[in-house]
């Protein structure tokens, strides 16, 4: 790649079936969830990293937020296959925008993408995932996992979207999120419909929703 400076070495992400991610690498690196490699050929080296940003600041953030995804850096020549507990895998293309995803749902990213942590407030708590979430930013590909095949829902300014916190997987684009609660007198009496809390997305972007609900506080009331 020495002659053409603009031609970057980028790991090729492709899906093999719906549950296995194959990455073709030529000397470049990807970041993947710890222990998610199932097979490889060629030469690969695995090194542990820590999510939530780089450097000392990242370390402090990780300690404080509990959003410490254990990531490994995979580098080498050949093909590497990743899978995790037979979860469905979705490929996401990032062109300079930001992807918000729960660290437990993130399988792999291009090494060129920056990962960080952001505060989610009430929304995070309602998902049963804590108050913080992982962000992925830059140009490249990322693979996210869902329990069952995820649907991608587009949100535009005319069409806001409301999702169940337990079924939310990730979102990208320029979205504002707000927390909605439908708690009424009936809910307090234990007669709720099981849909007391929702997340509302407004703006312009994409939301990934899985056909399954995590156990959340919201699901119980």
């Amino acid at each position: 790649m020495g002659t053409a400076g603009y031609l970057r070495c980028v790991a090729m992400f492709r899906l093999q079936g719906s549950k296995v991610l194959a990455v073709d690498m030529t000397g470049d690196a990807v970041k993947a969830k710890n222990g998610s490699m199932v097979a490889y050929d060629g030469q690969m080296a695995f090194k542990k990293m820590s999510g939530g940003g780089e450097g000392l600041r990242g370390m402090v953030t990780r300690r404080l937020t509990g959003e410490q995804m254990t990531v490994m850096e995979v580098k080498g020549h050949g093909t590497c296959w990743f899978a995790d507990r037979a979860s469905e895998i979705n490929l996401v293309n990032l062109q300079g925008d930001k992807l918000y995803v729960e660290s437990s749902n993130l399988l792999a990213t291009d090494a060129g993408l920056r990962t960080g942590t952001s505060f989610t407030g009430m929304r995070g708590a309602s998902q049963g995932n804590g108050l913080f979430t992982t962000t992925v930013e830059g140009h490249g590909q990322a693979a996210i996992m869902s329990d069952g095949p995820a649907v991608v829902l587009r949100v535009s300014s005319q069409y806001p979207l409301t999702v169940d916190p337990g079924a939310y997987v990730a979102h990208q684009g320029n979205l504002r999120q707000s927390f909605q609660s439908g708690v009424t007198f009936r809910t307090l009496m234990g007669e709720g419909g099981g849909e007391a809390f929702q997340i509302r997305f407004e703006g312009d972007g994409l939301v990934y929703v899985q056909p399954s609900e995590r156990n959340t506080i919201a699901g119980d009331v």
Partner: peptide
């Protein structure tokens, strides 16, 4: 198997490493 299965061919020039 748990989850889907996929097959990786092994040739003398291409050894495969598996978890």
């Amino acid at each position: 198997a748990h989850g889907g299965v996929f097959e990786i061919p092994i040739t003398p020039q291409r050894p495969v490493h598996v978890d």
